[in-house]
Amino acid sequence: MGKKKTKVSRVIIYIFLTLFSVIMLSPLVIVLSSSFRTPGNMTSPLKLFREFSLESYVTAFTKMGYLSEFVNSFITTAGSVCIIVLLTSMAAYPLVRIKKKSSRGLYYFFIAGMVIPAQMIIVPIAQVFGRLHIPNTRFTPMIMFVTCSLPFAIFLYTGFLKSVPVELEEAAFLEGAGLWRRFFTIVFPMLKPATVSVIITQGMWIWNDYFFPMVFTTKRTQYSLPVGMIQFLGDRENPAQWNVLFAACILCAIPLIILFLCLQKHFVNGIAAGAVKG
C-alpha cells in the first residue's frame, strides 16, 4: 500500500514546490527581463525577454557611480567583518572560560543588545559621534556595523566555544604559554565553523545595509551600493524609469548573488550553524 501513496504525495509535493518557487522567482524574473530593455520601452514588463539591450545598464552604471560605490561597499564590509571576528571571538573567550556570575552577567549584557533596534537610538548615537568629533567619511558606518554585530557574533562564538574542550589548552599551559598564545594558537583555530558563520551572516547584512551609511555619510563619493540606491526613490513612481531602476537593482544585488552561487555550501552551513548550534 505504501508505494502508491508515496507516489501520489510526491507529485503533490513537487506541485507545491514548483508553485512556490514560481511565486518567489517571478518578481525577479520580470526585473531581470525588464533590465535588458532599452530605457524608453514602456510595453508591459510581463512580455518577457523580447529585447536584449545593455543600454539601461549603462545608464544605471554611470548614474550610480557604480565602481566607487562597489569599492566603498567592499572596503567597509570586509573591514568590519575582520574587526568583528577578532573582537567577538576574543570577547567570547573569558565569557565561556571564566565560570562565575560576573561572566554570566556580562554575557547577558551583550546578548540583550540584540533586541535594541538601531532606528530607536540613532539620534543619541549621532550625538555621541558629534561629541567625539568623528567626521562623516566612507569608513564611519563601520563603527556602527561592528557595534551592531557584537551581540549576535558573541552569541555565536560563545555557543561554539563551549564545545571546545579545556583540556586542549592544558598542554600549552604546562609549557608555560600565556593567555594570548593559548587563545590565538589553540582556541581560535578550533572556532573556524563559528568564524565562517560570523563572516557570512554579518557580512551579508553589512553589505546590504543602507541605514547606517544613510545617516553617517554625506557625499556621493562616500556612498555604498545600497545607500546609492536611495537616489532612485523618486523614479519608482514613474514607469518610464523602470528599466533603468531595474538594471540598478540587478547591479546592486549581483555581487552577492555571484558569491552565493560560488560558495553555496558555506552560505547554507554558515547561516544554519549560527542558529542551530548557538
Partner: peptide, 28 residues
C-alpha cells in the same frame, strides 16, 4: 587549568564599543 580574572581583558575592546555606541545611547 588557570583561568585568571585578567582574562577579562579579552572582552574589553568589545565592551568599550558596545557601551559607548549602544548602551549609552539607550540610557540617553
Amino acid at each position: 587549568l588557570v583561568m585568571p580574572n585578567r582574562m577579562y581583558i579579552f572582552a574589553v575592546p568589545a565592551l568599550l564599543l558596545f557601551s559607548v555606541f549602544w548602551i549609552y545611547p539607550v540610557l540617553q
